[in-house]
C-alpha cells in the first residue's frame, strides 16, 4: 500500500504535465526546429533554399546596422514600457479591489480597452493623435498648448506608442486583481489590529503575497514588449525615420516584405537567445523576492 503510493507520486508529476508536452511535440517542436534549420539557409518564399551555414548570422552581426538600431529601440521601449505598465496595472488593480460603492463600474472601464480589436485601436488612436486635426491636439490647443506631431516626430512617436499600448493594460490589471482578491481578509484584519498603516501593509503583506504574480507579469510583459509588432505595424510602420522600427517589425519585414525567411529566422533566434538569458536572470533574481509557499515551507523543514 505504501509502496504503491510512492510509485504513484513518483510518476504523478509527469502524468500531470504530459498532455502539455504531447502538444509541444506535435505542434510546437516541429516548427521551432524547422525555423532553426531555416536560419542556416538562404530561404526565399518561392524557389529553392540554399545552405549558407552561419551566413545569415554573420550578416546580422557585421553588415546590418538596422539589426543594432532595432535592437536598441526595442530595449529602450521595453525599459520604459515594462515598469510603467507594471506600476499602472498594479495601481489600477489596487484601486478596483477596494470595496467602495460604484467601483465595479470602474473595473469595467479599465478592462474595456483590452477587448477592442487592434485594427480599430490603431484607427481611433491614429486620428486622435493627428497633428493638425486630431482631438488630442485640439483639446491641448483649448488649453493654450500647441501639441506635437505625435506620430511623425522622432521625439514623440515612441511616447505615442507607449500611450497607445498602455491603453490595453487591463489584462495585466486583471491578473493582479485576481491575485489581490486571493489574499484572505483575515491577514489584513490581523495587520490592522497590529496597527500597521496602509503603506506598510502594502509593502510588507500585499506585495510579498502577490510576488509570484508580479514575476509572471514582469516576464510576460517583457516578452511581449520585446516582440511588439502589430501596433507598430498599424500605427507608425516603424517611422518616423525608423525611430520606432522595432525588432518585431525588423523580423516581420525580412520575412514578409523581403521574402528572406532564413534571415528572418536567424534574427528571431538571436532575439530568442536574448529573451531567454534575460528571463533566466529575472528567475534567478526572483529567488530573492518571490515569496513561494511551497519552497519556503520546504526550507523551513
Amino acid at each position: 500500500m505504501k509502496a504503491k503510493r510512492k510509485m504513484n507520486s513518483r510518476f504523478a508529476p509527469y502524468l500531470f504535465i504530459l498532455p502539455y508536452f504531447i502538444g509541444v511535440l506535435l505542434f510546437t517542436a516541429g516548427p521551432l526546429v524547422m525555423s532553426f534549420i531555416m536560419s542556416f539557409f538562404d530561404w526565399p518564399v518561392i524557389g529553392d533554399p540554399v545552405f549558407t551555414g552561419m551566413g545569415n548570422y554573420i550578416e546580422l552581426f557585421t553588415k546590418d546596422s538596422q539589426f543594432y538600431d532595432s535592437m536598441a529601440i526595442t530595449f529602450k521601449f521595453s525599459a520604459i514600457f515594462v515598469p510603467l505598465t507594471i506600476v499602472l496595472s498594479l495601481a489600477l488593480a489596487l484601486l478596483i479591489s477596494r470595496q467602495l460603492k460604484g467601483i465595479s463600474l470602474f473595473r469595467v472601464v479599465f478592462y474595456l480597452p483590452t477587448v477592442v480589436s487592434s485594427v480599430s485601436i490603431s484607427i481611433i488612436w491614429g486620428w486622435i493623435l493627428n497633428k493638425e486635426y486630431g482631438i488630442l491636439n485640439y483639446m491641448l490647443s483649448l488649453l493654450g498648448v500647441s501639441g506635437p506631431d505625435w506620430l511623425n516626430s522622432r521625439k514623440w512617436a515612441l511616447v505615442a506608442l507607449i500611450i497607445v499600448s498602455g491603453w490595453t493594460v487591463g489584462t495585466m490589471m486583471l491578473v493582479f486583481y485576481t491575485a489581490l482578491k486571493g489574499i484572505s481578509t483575515e491577514i489584513y484584519e490581523a495587520a490592522r489590529i497590529d496597527g500597521s498603516g496602509e503603506f506598510r501593509t502594502f509593502f510588507q503583506i500585499t506585495l510579498p503575497l502577490i510576488s509570484p504574480t508580479m514575476q509572471f507579469n514582469i516576464v510576460t510583459s517583457f516578452i511581449s514588449a520585446l516582440q511588439n509588432l502589430s501596433l507598430v505595424m498599424l500605427l507608425t510602420k516603424g517611422g518616423p525615420m525608423k525611430s520606432t522600427y522595432m525588432y518585431g517589425l525588423f523580423v516581420y519585414n525580412n520575412a514578409f516584405q523581403k521574402s528572406r525567411l532564413g534571415y528572418a529566422s536567424a534574427s528571431a533566434w538571436v532575439m530568442f537567445v536574448i529573451i531567454l538569458l534575460l528571463t533566466s536572470l529575472i528567475f534567478k533574481s526572483s529567488d530573492r523576492w518571490v515569496f513561494n509557499q511551497v519552497t519556503s515551507k520546504e526550507e523551513r523543514r
Partner: peptide
C-alpha cells in the same frame, strides 16, 4: 524552461513551418 521558451520565439518565423505542418 522549455515551456517558457515556447513563448519566446516570434510567431512570424514559426508560422510558415506551421502552415506546412
Amino acid at each position: 524552461s522549455i515551456l517558457l521558451a515556447t513563448m519566446m520565439l516570434p510567431w512570424d518565423v514559426t508560422m510558415i513551418p506551421q502552415y506546412m505542418e
